[in-house]
Amino acid sequence: MDKQRIRDALGAAVTDAPTPLAAADRLCAACVQLLDVDGASISFIDGGTTQGTFGSSNQLSRTLDELQFTYGQGPCLDAVAQRRPIQAPHLNGPGEDRWPALTQAILGHGIHAIFALPVAVAGTPIGALDLYRRSSGPLDDAAMTGGVWAAGLAALPMLDLMTSDTDWQKAAHGRGSWDQLASLERVEVYQATGMIVAALEVTPADALVRLRAHAISRSLTASDVAYQILDRRLVLDADDWHETDRGQEGTT
């Protein structure tokens, strides 16, 4: 399958989902369908107390993902801690000694290769997409590219999981997921995220969650809301963001 079709299909999997959990599950299912892998899961790891499996393509993938938390080791935890893709193409190979206990358990389920790709939000990795394969060996170029795309898209349901404020009717019927992601990855959004961090004393990821939830509730893009914040046209109260009449006095 050509890369453009993979990209479109991955994007569509997230766009139509009714809830963040459904979006994560569908993205994992799409990975199995489109990439040369037998299972996929998405974990949420915020570095603090919250961590766990968030989406999966099937029960086995969910079990494999949860094993990493049970043993407290594994490629998805390493991918988040080291902020980079972790590849284990030969789990039963002689050189593979990174996660001894976990590796035995995973091999017991008939899986011989794992690839973990970090999922980042607001410049911070908060999770990972894991791809599992029964046969050993590296991912081919198309599958690796597709995995990186899927890990990028996984940021959207992950952001939405972090809030109960998102209006799902509007979010599901909004713009395509690639456009939504593009709207989040912009300089003005980064700057506005920092302003929310200062105003509400929250983490950057939480700040971006709130920015996105506000954008969805007003049918605006994240970029639109970011410029409102930079121009001091939005009062950033903890509960309710409202517009001021201060107008565009402009900073960037």
Partner: peptide
């Protein structure tokens, strides 16, 4: 990304 966020923190 983090640099721009930090500018936002100081700006606010």
């Amino acid at each position: 990304v983090i640099l721009e966020q930090a500018k936002g923190v100081l700006s606010y």
